[in-house]
Design a protein around this nucleic acid. Structure first.
Lengths: 188, 188
DNA sequence: GCGTTATTATACCATTCGGTATAGAAATAG
DNA sequence: CTATTTCTATACCGAATGGTATAATAACGC
């Protein structure tokens, strides 16, 4: 089982560095110190390897996210939890965050995109439901859940990418500022 | 010169549909109805083709954007102009918008990313300067120009992607709602 | 007319692509 | 100990990769 994890780890590093399509299986197995049949034994195909990679990281994260969006009547608090969850995720495994961003922005016909799509959709649904539950407190939100989820995710990814590119650093302050900006706009 | 434009058009369609790395030059020249030496005559390399493609679309757009950010003492108006400029761009050439999103989110070591990076940086600078000029009117913005530019771009791309994926439609209303949300947050 | 340059096709290059058939180890079950 | 299953290596597959040497053709200035 150790070879399996080596393959996942090296595949993540290579995919994140140069992209899914640009990295060949030969390069992955060489980095992992094994040969091709080993990879095909565990994952069946290059795509299967990608799917396993996504599941291993997104699986646990989605459970975190599901806990973070749990509404307790305090939307501002939930927003902080959610944003913090994404930031922690990106900080813990920056390579994976980069990879999944690249995969999601990839063309819809690209095979890599089809693999991430379900994960993104589930997360979007979780976020939208958080806003939907807040409707009780903020009646004027009605019908805007999806757009709010969209904008929040867009801001988070935009901020995270800036950090990954070295233009900023992760901090509690950054989380607060993002949430504050999202909540009250730029004129306050 | 007609072959040159055919190559650019077909390359855009293919890159946008399946990704830069996944599309071979053979496929491009076949779609354009020419052969490989023609492509290499005009562009020198696959990367050169990508560079020409980006310049041909981003060049004109950056001039539009530069006009849109021109500050006239009315930041809300400038925000509307900027957002509208991006939406119009995405609506006019959706394939190119998809492609450039994919390229920018690609890993920094990926050759495709290096080609888009300068364009994205210039656009970010233009946006940040717009917010900087608004400091006169809104003193509390000081030091936040970069983050505002980041968040605005993130929201725009997030919205545009949703439209390109068929979850929404371009409209004046959508532009207004985006700008309003960006300006005043979700509690208004 | 001529010489020059720009443009294009045929045919080819070495390398790499994702994937596999065969078979040898290694672990496990009985 | 044997039988079976799991795992891994050698060696290979056809197809496609980005790119090019050679040469024919077309367009051009003169």
């Amino acid at each position: 089982m150790e070879n399996r994890e080596q393959l996942l780890a090296q595949a993540l590093a290579l995919f994140a560095a140069r992209g899914y399509d640009a990295v060949g299986v030969q390069e992955i197995v060489a980095a992992a110190g094994v040969t091709k049949p080993t990879l095909y034994h565990y994952f069946g195909s290059k795509r299967g390897l990608l799917e396993a990679l996504l599941e291993s990281h997104f699986g646990p994260f989605e459970r975190n996210l599901a806990a973070a969006v749990t509404h307790t009547g305090d939307l501002p608090l939930a927003l902080m939890r959610v944003t913090q969850a994404y930031f922690t995720f990106a900080q813990t495994t920056p390579a994976f965050y980069r990879l999944h961003l690249a995969l999601y922005m990839a063309p819809s016909e690209a095979e890599a995109r089809q693999v991430v799509s379900p994960y993104y959709l589930r997360q979007h649904t979780l976020l939208a439901e958080m806003f939907a539950q807040a409707t009780t407190q903020h009646g004027n939100m009605r019908g805007r859940h999806a757009r709010y989820a969209l904008a929040l995710r867009g801001m988070i990814d935009s901020y995270v990418l800036a950090v990954l590119d070295g233009y900023a650093a992760f901090s509690e302050t950054l989380v607060y500022e993002l949430v504050h900006q999202f909540s009250h706009g730029i004129y306050s």
